[in-house]
Amino acid sequence: MKTSVYIYIVPVIAVVSSGVLLHENITGIAILVIILTLAGLFISEGKLIVKLSWIMFDTTTR
């Protein structure tokens, strides 16, 4: 599972580092793709589902 995290995070790091180091323009589409990639990564690793289920089924705050 760790390998898939690195495979999916490489393009995100490439876009961010090209913006920071090379002063490339990061377009809205690139930002959208980064958000979708990170969301897919969190969903596939199960971390987002656990947090959402905790929020939905938390009875202490109601």
Results as ranks from 00 to 15, higher is better:
residue 21 L to V: 13
residue 34 I to W: 03
residue 53 S to G: 00
residue 7 I to K: 12
residue 37 T to N: 11
residue 16 V to W: 06
residue 46 G to T: 10
residue 40 G to F: 07
residue 51 K to R: 13
residue 23 H to E: 10
residue 27 T to C: 04
residue 22 L to V: 11
residue 15 V to M: 02
residue 47 K to E: 12
residue 33 V to Q: 01
residue 28 G to Y: 05
residue 29 I to C: 00
residue 54 W to T: 13
residue 24 E to F: 14
residue 40 G to P: 03
residue 40 G to W: 09
residue 51 K to F: 14
residue 21 L to M: 14
residue 35 I to R: 03
residue 15 V to W: 01
residue 22 L to D: 10
residue 11 P to N: 04
residue 22 L to R: 10
residue 50 V to P: 01
residue 11 P to S: 04
residue 29 I to E: 09
residue 13 I to P: 00
residue 47 K to Q: 12
residue 42 F to A: 06
residue 5 V to C: 03
residue 55 I to N: 02
residue 12 V to L: 02
residue 32 L to D: 04
residue 19 G to I: 05
residue 5 V to D: 06
residue 46 G to A: 07
residue 42 F to G: 01
residue 6 Y to W: 11
residue 57 F to G: 05
residue 37 T to M: 08
residue 57 F to T: 13
residue 38 L to W: 05
residue 20 V to R: 02
residue 6 Y to Q: 08
residue 28 G to Q: 07
residue 30 A to H: 08
residue 48 L to A: 13
residue 40 G to L: 05
residue 54 W to D: 09
residue 26 I to A: 00
residue 14 A to H: 09
residue 46 G to K: 08
residue 26 I to P: 01
residue 55 I to D: 00
residue 47 K to S: 07
residue 47 K to T: 15
residue 38 L to I: 15
residue 41 L to F: 09
residue 12 V to G: 01
residue 44 S to L: 12
residue 26 I to L: 01
residue 12 V to H: 02
residue 32 L to A: 14
residue 39 A to W: 15
residue 7 I to S: 10
residue 25 N to R: 12
residue 52 L to W: 11
residue 51 K to Y: 14
residue 21 L to E: 13
residue 38 L to N: 05
residue 29 I to G: 01
residue 18 S to W: 05
residue 5 V to E: 08
residue 20 V to H: 05
residue 7 I to E: 12
residue 31 I to V: 12
residue 26 I to Y: 01
residue 41 L to D: 03
residue 53 S to H: 13
residue 44 S to K: 15
residue 27 T to M: 04
residue 40 G to A: 02
residue 48 L to S: 06
residue 25 N to D: 13
residue 51 K to Q: 10
residue 39 A to P: 00
residue 24 E to T: 13
residue 36 L to T: 12
residue 45 E to W: 12
residue 15 V to E: 00
residue 36 L to G: 06
residue 32 L to M: 06
residue 42 F to V: 11
residue 46 G to P: 08
residue 15 V to C: 00
residue 36 L to F: 14
residue 15 V to K: 04
residue 8 Y to M: 12
residue 52 L to H: 05
residue 35 I to Q: 06
residue 16 V to F: 07
residue 55 I to P: 00
residue 30 A to D: 09
residue 8 Y to K: 14
residue 38 L to T: 11
residue 14 A to W: 15
residue 5 V to H: 11
residue 33 V to L: 03
residue 14 A to P: 00
residue 30 A to V: 00
residue 26 I to N: 01
residue 15 V to D: 00
residue 23 H to T: 09
residue 49 I to V: 13
residue 49 I to R: 07
residue 6 Y to C: 02
residue 11 P to E: 02
residue 24 E to R: 14
residue 35 I to M: 08
residue 43 I to H: 06
residue 33 V to M: 01
residue 56 M to D: 12
residue 39 A to V: 15
residue 16 V to A: 10
residue 19 G to F: 05
residue 37 T to E: 02
residue 23 H to P: 00
residue 27 T to G: 09
residue 37 T to Q: 05
residue 22 L to A: 08
residue 51 K to H: 10
residue 29 I to A: 03
residue 18 S to I: 04
residue 41 L to M: 11
residue 11 P to H: 06
residue 45 E to C: 07
residue 56 M to H: 10
residue 31 I to S: 03
residue 19 G to L: 06
residue 14 A to E: 09
